[in-house]
Design a protein around this nucleic acid. Structure first.
Lengths: 199, 199
DNA sequence: CGGCGTTTTGAGAGAGCTCAACATCGGTGG
DNA sequence: CCACCGATGTTGAGCTCTCTCAAAACGCCG
């Protein structure tokens, strides 16, 4: 998922960094596409403004995300992008990227692979959200993310972050983990969870 | 999103149809990748089986979906695919697809565009699920899907389907729509909803 | 030491879920 | 033509679970 996995060196070199203050607009719906962006730091809200001026958020991109991949194939952006906090982005001009794809079809592959993996990942997350029960969500998450040993799950960030990822409030997640530990389903370690039995 | 938008004729012609009965396996985790599939009819569950034999569903693909796009770039499949009902799929062999991409870089573009659009769509759906309130979810959905006139929303299928899409039970959706109509927020027509005011 | 964010536990309320009954519509077969 | 059936649509009542608000312990860093 890291940019260097799919970005060829010439494109990477052509990246243009830009700083945004909170509330600053990166691009507007309807404005001509310049290229795709990678979020280096901060948060960018992708949203569409309805006829009453309220904005409907489509996605909130955070560090590491790329946004506007589809801009490569479209004349205009189809939503607004606004910095939610002070943010640094990196622009990869579409002309450069597309030229590189044409020059050497092989460089398009890692890009396609990256897109395909994102799709898998997003579908999986969406499936998770179909699960109502907090406990079952946690179970599902653990099942999907067990390490190679089949018993331990590395926690990427804080439990609060995990709660957001799971679509739960952090309080509920804490409680659920406590209960599961109490029931002997899991064991909690430093930044890890060990699955103890069939859940 | 339709296959003919991104599939070049030679690849399309190379598609191989296959019928699956309920419970039949399309591919297994770890088995060598043959290519990607398009669901013509029916349902296919993508799942991973944990060490206790329970399956954790990653995604349920229905007619029109493509699955295993990432197989193009991977030696083995990374989940199981099992027909959830009697199903017809169409296999596009990876060798054919990749050869076509190499032969003419331009044919890869529609494919990339399709992937990028799917990502946008999935991110948007995921964002919707972050909204707790049923009413706000419906509002968001309507905002995102207003037609060009800015006031009417075409409903793709049944209300039951919509409920699933929104991650609500159908009962709650019915009730919410009733209330919104009662409050004069929306008007319900044949297969359409008209937004009456700022919601 | 003093603040800030995370983690934790408590209590209460509300929203959506579940179960249940019934209406409606389209298709099927006697 | 009508009876039957299944799926969709609709409404009711109760209950569970999660959210919300609150408070406090904890660890980390300046």
């Amino acid at each position: 998922m890291n940019t260097k996995d799919w970005l060829p060196v010439p494109v990477r070199a052509a990246g243009i960094e830009r700083k945004l203050v909170r509330g600053e607009t990166l691009f507007h719906l309807g404005s001509p596409t310049v290229g795709l962006y990678e979020i280096m730091h901060g948060k960018v809200r992708l949203a569409r403004v309805d006829r009453f001026g309220r904005e409907a958020v489509l996605y909130t991109a955070t560090a590491g995300d790329t946004i506007a991949e589809a801009s490569l194939f479209s004349r205009t952006y189809n939503c607004d992008a606004v910095a939610a906090t002070s943010t640094v982005v990196r622009l990869y001009p579409k002309a450069v990227v597309l030229a590189e794809f044409s020059r050497d079809p092989e460089v398009a592959r890692p890009f396609m692979a990256m897109l395909a993996h994102q799709i898998m990942d997003l579908r999986t997350r969406l499936e998770l959200r179909n699960i109502r029960s907090a406990r079952d969500r946690v179970r599902h998450y653990l099942d999907i993310n067990v390490g190679l040993d089949g018993w331990t799950v590395e926690l990427p960030g804080t439990l609060k972050d995990l709660a957001a990822e799971l679509g739960l409030t952090h309080e509920v997640l804490y409680r659920t983990l406590s209960e599961m530990q109490h029931d002997g389903d899991i064991e909690r370690l430093e930044g890890k969870i060990r699955i103890m039995r069939s859940l």
